[in-house]
Design a protein around this nucleic acid. Sequence first.
DNA 1: CCTACACTTTCCAGTCACTGGAAGGTCAAG
DNA 2: CTTGACCTTCCAGTGACTGGAAAGTGTAGG
Lengths: 132, 132
Amino acid sequence: MNIGTASEKSGLPPKTIRYYEDIGLMKAGRAGNGYRDYSTEDVHRLRFLQRSRGLGFSVEECRQLLSLYDDKQRESAEVKAIAEAKLKEIDRKLAELVGLRDTLRHLVRHCHGDERPECPIMDGLAGEQATG
Amino acid sequence: MNIGTASEKSGLPPKTIRYYEDIGLMKAGRAGNGYRDYSTEDVHRLRFLQRSRGLGFSVEECRQLLSLYDDKQRESAEVKAIAEAKLKEIDRKLAELVGLRDTLRHLVRHCHGDERPECPIMDGLAGEQATG
DNA sequence: CCTACACTTTCCAGTCACTGGAAGGTCAAG
DNA sequence: CTTGACCTTCCAGTGACTGGAAAGTGTAGG
C-alpha cells in the first residue's frame, strides 16, 4: 500500500512517516515505481509509533519500544528489561494523567468562573510533590 | 525563591522555565537584585506544566490549561468548554496509554525472546483501528 | 577588603522532531 | 495526451527546548 493509505490508517502524516524512515526508525519496502510500499504489519508499527509519540515518549524511546518487536533474536533478558522499564514509565504516566484529569475535573466542578477572588484549587494544585 | 529551587521543586530545568517566560507562558516576579522570584503558587503552575508537557500536550494546549486558573474572570461557559475538551483529550490519552501498556505486557508475557519465527502480538498490535 | 565559587542574568547558536514548499516523476480517468 | 491526485527528493522553516559564552550577584573564608 502507498504512503497515503498508510498515513490514513496510522494517523501519521506522510511527512512524518518519511522522516521516520530518514532517521532509521521505520523503513518500508519499495514498489517497482520507486514508491514506498507498506504492509499491514508496517501500518501496525506506524500506529504504535503514533500512539507512543503522542503520549510523550521520545523518538529514541519509541525506537526501543519498536525493538521489542523487531529484535526477536535478542537476549530475552535484555528485551524484558527494556519492556519492564517502559511499563513502569507508562504506569507513572498513567498516574500523572489521572492526576491531571482530577485537577481539571475539580476545576470544572468547583471553580465555575463566577468571579471568585481565589480558586480553591490553586492551593492543592499539583501538590502531590515533585521530587518525591 | 530563586529559579534553581523552583526548578528542583517543579522538575523543570531552569532553561525551560526561562523559555516559558520568554514565550509568555509563565511569568515570575523579580527580586531587588534582578533575579526571578517564584512563589509556591508559581511552583504549582510549573509542576502543572511539567506534567502536561510530559504527557504530550503542546505548549499552546498548556497555555489553555493554565488559562483555566489564571482567567477566572472569563466567561464561565468558555472556560468550561476548554476544560471539558481537555478532559476528553485526557480520557483519550488514558485509553491509549492503557492500550500501550496492554500491548507491552502481552509482549513481556507471551514473546519471551525464544526465537519464535513470528510473535503472536504482531497481528493484534494496535489493531484497535486508527481512523475511528 | 579580596578571592573563590555557586548561582543568576541575557543572548545567541545548536538540536530534536517535525512541517511546508519547490521541482519533478507516476498513474488512472477522460 | 492532458489533467490532477498522488508520489519522489531536497532544502528551508518552526516549535520546544538546550548548551555555552560573558557578565552580574551572593556568600563564605582569609
